[in-house]
Amino acid sequence: MSAAEAATLPVRALDTLMDRTLAPGYSRIGFEVRRRLPGWPADPQPGALAGRHVLVTGASSGLGIGCVEGLARLGAAVHMVVRDEVKGERVRGQIISRVGDADLRVTRCDLADLDDVRRFADELDLTSVHALIHNAGVMPPERTESPQGHELSMAVHVLGPVLMTELLRDRLHSGRTVLVSSGGMYAQRLPAGDPEFRLGEYSPSVAYARSKRMQVEMLPLLADRWSFDGMVLAGMHPGWADTPGVRESLPTFRRLTRPILRDDRQGADTSVWLAATRPAPPTGRFWHDRVPRPTHLVPATRPRADEVARAWAWLRSATGLD
């Protein structure tokens, strides 16, 4: 170990300690402490995304807004992929009022509907996409099925994003794709035997966290697949942010933690950084606050090899990957 490395040890230890103890790390405290520590990865250069097209799903609420704004400030042409174009246009206006020269375009796609994802990819009039941020999220109060009969959180967080990325892989050549996951996935195992939540009593937060676990476990396999397009695939979790999803679905959690929840900018920081930083980050990693993080905090959540194989077969079949 060099002297320089030794000198950064306490900083790394603090960063890691905050990560493993969740509350300090995942809250706004963690973000504010980390970005002041030596070794905090540098901000992207001003104009880092000038002339580049970036797609953000779920762009008209919560972290999506923070993400669009952060990308626009770096000069990107941001395509706001939304379900509700009226709301999308309203949010677009609000962002432009803050970032005057933002180049924002609103476009419609319902990530839950694989047919609509195919239509979207067909109609997207771009030859090159620099980055695709899969930010769209849902937490259905009751078990809900997508038009193709898939459980809705799995459809929106996993199947739609995987299909969209697959269909855009030529245009994403040497680009970056970010899956916005959730720290909630740390508490769940991979639901290999029941990805559609057909068994047991449905719980919105469990369904949500399982779909986020599915994203994270499929991440290395998808990164392998898309490495042949020179694509960087990154998973990330935003920490605990004050999002509409949290407000609607976890009111008690929000009441207790409100003062320390992250705002949209803080929650979207790592997504924006992953899209813009140079050189490109390594593929297949799971990030939080600009640093690769472990995907398991306890051994009990580790999937067996046969479970990964089963989940992968399900994902391939549901999205029609050859």
Binding site: P220, L221, A223, D224, S227, G230, G284, A305, D306, A309
Partner: peptide, 29 residues
């Protein structure tokens, strides 16, 4: 041989009376 996807994935499952083992290889560019 449990899984074979050229060129990204190889998965073999080994078994005898007292043992089950998985060898999984991921290959990326």
């Amino acid at each position: 041989v449990a899984e074979l996807e050229r060129p990204t994935r190889i998965h073999l499952v080994g078994r005898n009376e007292q043992f089950e083992g998985h060898d999984v290889l991921g290959v990326r560019a």
